[in-house]
Amino acid sequence: MRNSLIRLLLLLPALLLGEAALALGTVAGTAIDNVAEVSYEVGGSEVTEQSNMLTVTVAEILDVVVTLQDPAKPVSPGDASQELLFTVTNTGNGTEAFALVIDSALAGDDFDPTPSTPVSIYIDTDGSGDLSAGDTQYNPGVNDPSLAPDANIDILIVNDIPAAAADGQIGRSLLQATATTGSGAPGTVFAGAGDGGVDAVAGNSSATDSDTGEYVVSSVQLDLVKSAAVVDQFGGNEPVPGASITYTIVVTPAGGGTASTSRFNDLIPANTTYTAGTLRLNGAPLTDAPDADQGQLVTIAGAPAINVNLGDLTAASGPQTVEFTVTID
């Protein structure tokens, strides 16, 4: 008797409901059934009773997270169509469309970027992370991105940088995403407005979120001065076959801002051969191999070249001196 009772329990619909998509909570519209059983003895015989079937339905919770993907973006005064990349994630438990808004008139920065016209929000359709021909213009109310629970989409906001922005100044711009079903204080109920007609409820995000990116005006310039010293095998300075030429390149950062991850490349001149082990940065030898140090021999468009990673340079970094030696063939 007890075994058959257990078998009955195992057949209950509540146990058969799918476990899919529980990452962020049970999916909106799920019906959760429950039937209790009581067994007992009366008058010497064993009896089993089932309760009513009790059903509670999972309402749709409206939640969203917006996350900036770019570090501060270096720009120049007057630059047009400078993008910032964000990710919008549906952290609710139903499929939801989100309205997107850009705001560049923020307090606490040095200048206001100008949202580009006619379109300042793009869906990064091609996944490149920057504004490109494959991206989709966002049209409010027309192509609000619809996201399944836990799904996300990359969004670009695009601003023009005012010509008057000065060196080193920061301008901020934000992307806001809001559930189209509705938003409001956590717990706000939108009766019948959720997936499949269940109630929708604003979650902890109030069904809206934003994140802010920033542009940094950087007019840093790298001035290059290259010089060459010839030493021939006869003790003179004649550029004859067999003579060596040592090139010295001085890279001097000037102006404000940061030149991020600067690299210096120089092709080995035609009719010369690089002399192994002669690459130096600020007097310190660098190996020719692509390893932990900052220098290596590379091939650019089929031609040999030296490559030195100078890193982030500011005016305070001072001049950077790269040296290498070749032999005239």
Partner: peptide
């Protein structure tokens, strides 16, 4: 709701899978 004593009573309830 009957007129006899019910004995050896056992109540069994599944915890719903989503719970």
């Amino acid at each position: 709701v009957g007129d006899q004593v019910a004995q050896a009573i056992t109540i069994t309830d599944p915890v719903p899978a989503e719970m």
